[in-house]
Simulated scan of single mutants.
Amino acid sequence: MRNTSPAQSTCAIARTLAALNDRWSFLVLREAFSGVTKFGEFRENLGIASDVLSARLATLVDYGILTKERYQEPGQRARDAYLLTPAGTDLKVVLGALQQWGDNHLARPEGPSIHRVDATTGAPLNVVFADDQGHVVDKDEAAFVRTAAYPSGD
């Protein structure tokens, strides 16, 4: 990348990577998709340092992926819960694709730690390309076609 901050890039991938700038961001999202909302739960589940977690949560909030909502448990001070926004929920497909790739190419002997399933039927799910009518398109038939807006210096 030259002369352009990733957040200002014409490339959507570069802008996305500015928002999801390291592995901790993806792991925070994994926990959020599992229902975690509290700072202490994120810290405990991930084994992440508090300063690193604070920075990642702030970035995810700044990019509109998470939102903060105040809550107070009886006898405790007010704290922030971190909730997925619609933009954050849209990243479920991204995390699902990363997890699917990891299961296919970096498999562990004990098998997957998470199964992607239909919440209603329990049927297994795969992350795929689909056209506007919902027809699955083989990944070998999916193409990334440059447009006039393609970044020349990014």
Rank of each mutant, 00 (worst) to 15 (best):
M1I: 06
R2E: 02
S5Y: 08
P6R: 14
P6L: 13
T16I: 07
T16L: 15
T16D: 12
A19L: 13
A19S: 13
L20C: 08
N21C: 11
R23P: 03
W24I: 14
F26H: 15
L27V: 03
L29Y: 07
E31K: 14
A32M: 11
V36N: 06
T37N: 09
E41P: 05
N45H: 13
I48P: 02
A49D: 12
D51W: 10
L53D: 07
A55Y: 08
L57A: 04
T59E: 12
L60M: 02
V61P: 04
Y63K: 09
G64N: 04
I65K: 01
I65A: 06
L66F: 06
L66S: 03
T67G: 13
E69M: 11
E69N: 11
R70I: 10
R70L: 09
Y71A: 04
E73M: 12
R77H: 10
A78S: 15
R79E: 14
D80F: 15
L84D: 07
T85I: 00
P86A: 03
G88A: 01
T89D: 12
K92A: 15
A97C: 02
Q99T: 07
G102L: 01
G102E: 03
D103R: 00
N104G: 05
L106F: 04
A107E: 00
R108E: 13
G111F: 00
S113P: 01
V117Y: 02
V117W: 00
A119W: 08
A123H: 11
P124A: 04
P124D: 02
V127W: 09
V127C: 08
V128S: 11
F129Q: 08
F129C: 14
F129W: 14
D131Q: 00
V136H: 05
V137M: 02
D138L: 03
D140T: 10
D140R: 15
E141L: 12
A142W: 12
A142D: 08
A143L: 15
A149D: 09
S152R: 11
G153T: 13
D154C: 15
